[in-house]
């Protein structure tokens, strides 16, 4: 683009005389000065993000250093590290651990469910079927989050759809056995961790399918041919060629499932046992108790966990598959 200044100026052409309004001159001048253009283009987004977002984020973490007086229920500006230290109280640590385990379990199960869909899309579907699959994964991903969560409260309700199907298929004893498991179960599906786990998996599943599909799509067919020419059975090809090369896609998808589960507080509120989640804790601290410093301190946890998670999956090539 910058090479244009060395070309003969088009303005001298006898067949075409461009209008010489202010707008036109300004556009030409900007074209000749890419740095000025760059600065002008970036200024509005930078101003917006700098003033609205980054400043708020930093202010939030700073708030975590303020003191909350339990007696007066007021925040004063004495700086303290106590809020951040209290994150390691056994009760708070439980919340962090519970959320972390759920996020990891949801990511793992989503990957298992997503893989066949992505594999079929990338390897066997073509033309209309592929377009159909694409839309069929994309639409639920974008469909209203709260409506999806609501749909699951209907599904899991007593006498609801899931119960009807479980009964129809004669699986009631299996469900009862699952619900009786300590740590996973509960009185009913809608008050068990199992129910919550299902809802999370459902809501974030499309975020896992599409990155895996994209990474499988990029796999060159010649690799598979080479593998089979060298005598590998289809299973061996899958195990030693396809699966390892799809790891970046799985890792990329898990960024979404992990981070979205980690910060959620609506699903834990609607489905599952009463124990708090990270997101719910932030919400309760801020909303019901009014302890903004503690809420702010709690937001550091998902930030740190996600940063750690990102540094792990980055090594698995997740960033190239995003």
């Amino acid at each position: 683009m910058t090479s244009r200044s060395s070309l003969p100026a088009a303005d001298n052409s006898p067949v075409f005389t461009p209008p010489s309004g202010l707008l036109y001159r300004a556009a030409d001048r900007l074209y000749r000065r890419p740095n000025l253009l760059l600065a002008l283009l970036l200024l509005p987004p930078l101003l917006w993000f700098g003033s609205v977002y980054i400043a708020s984020l930093l202010a939030l973490l700073w708030q975590g250093l303020y003191t909350f007086d339990d007696f007066t229920m007021l925040v004063n500006h004495t700086l303290t590290l106590e809020n951040y230290a209290r994150l390691f109280d056994p009760a708070n640590f439980d919340i962090i651990l519970r959320t972390l385990l759920m996020a990891l379990a949801v990511s793992a199960f989503s990957a298992i469910l997503a893989f066949p869909v992505a594999y079929y899309m990338a390897r066997y579907a073509s033309g209309r079927i592929k377009a159909f699959f694409y839309l069929a994964v994309m639409l639920p991903m974008w469909t209203s989050y709260i409506v999806k969560a609501y749909a699951w409260t209907l599904l899991l309700a007593q006498e609801g759809v899931s119960q009807w199907f479980v009964h129809l298929l004669g699986l009631t004893p299996l469900l009862d056995a699952l619900l009786a498991l300590p740590g996973v179960g509960g009185n009913t599906l809608s008050t068990s961790s199992l129910g919550r786990f299902l809802v999370f998996t459902y809501i974030w599943l499309p975020f896992m399918i599409l990155p895996i599909q994209a990474s499988l799509e990029r796999l060159p067919p010649s690799l598979l041919q080479a593998s089979s020419d060298l005598g590998a059975t289809p299973f061996k090809t899958f195990r030693h060629v396809i699966l390892p090369l799809s790891v970046p896609g799985i890792a990329a998808g898990s960024i979404f499932t992990f981070s979205l589960t980690l910060g959620d507080y609506i699903v834990p509120q609607l489905v599952g046992p009463p124990g708090l989640f990270l997101g719910s804790m932030v919400y309760v601290q801020q909303g019901s108790i009014g302890n903004m410093p503690m809420a702010a301190a709690f937001t550091l946890v998902p930030i740190v966990l996600i940063a750690i998670y990102l540094s792990i999956v980055k090594r698995m090539g997740a960033f190239d598959a995003l």
């Binding site: 699959f133 639920p140 209907l154 067919p221």
Partner: peptide, 30 residues
């Protein structure tokens, strides 16, 4: 990495089953 072979029955079931899972709650709402 498109292949002209046919997918196994299991893979087809798992793939279409995944789609059914994604859409079932939406159908319920409707």
């Amino acid at each position: 990495m498109h292949s002209d072979q046919h997918a196994s029955v299991w893979l087809k079931c798992a793939a279409w089953g995944g789609l059914v899972f994604l859409h079932f709650p939406i159908v319920i709402i409707a």
